[in-house]
Amino acid sequence: MRKGVQLILAVACCLLLNTAGWAWAGSIVGVVKPQGLRSPEGILVYVAKAPAGPTDGSQAKFIMDQTQLAFIPHILPVLVDSKVEFPNNDKVAHNVFSLSRAKKFNLGSYQPGEAKTVQFDQPGVVDLRCDVHQEMNAYILVLNNPYFALTDKEGRFTIPDQSYLGAHDVKDVPPLSPGKYLVKTWHEKLKTAKKKIEISAAGDTTIVFKPKRGAPGVLYK
């Protein structure tokens, strides 16, 4: 019994040290204060250039729901090679399509209760529409590394967002190693804001973005 407790404590200590080690190695925390948005929630903050890691997007599971004549969520960041399921949980048929360069597809009209899946193999912005309902619109942001986060209601974010990644079966994302990075924002109604930062081994790096109203740029040049 005593040995069992010791083992659990040892594992817990290792986990704690491991998590703390990520923070030391460089979590990016900060806040986005946008101009011209009703709420600072749902703005993507991402590391534009990051070292290629072992993360495999093809195992990740993402869902873009269709209910009450809307796509939910409105902005869905995914990893390149991820598969996104499009269930129709509405009362009427929908027809999801995209004309975006990052992924062109047309799922055709399908009935409530059915679901279709698309794999996103190129990074970029995918503008989703429904052929039946003009007002339905959402964005899938295909990212080439897991170092991104969506802002919360107060505009705060932490990169990498382990809870978001974990919820979509993206596990074992290592912390960013010390070095220089370019961090950018994306929102459909905001000009892209970017900042160069340097992550040190000492701890978190804090950034404040103040993006202005306007059209965003592409995710990656």
């Binding site: 011209g36 004549l69 202005k212 109203r213």
Partner: peptide, 20 residues
């Protein structure tokens, strides 16, 4: 609108003080 859809209005001011 129907089926629980609504559009909420908000206003904001740009750097030149113009309201949008």
């Amino acid at each position: 609108k129907q089926q629980g859809l609504a559009y909420l209005k908000y206003t904001w001011t740009d750097d030149e003080g113009k309201a949008h």
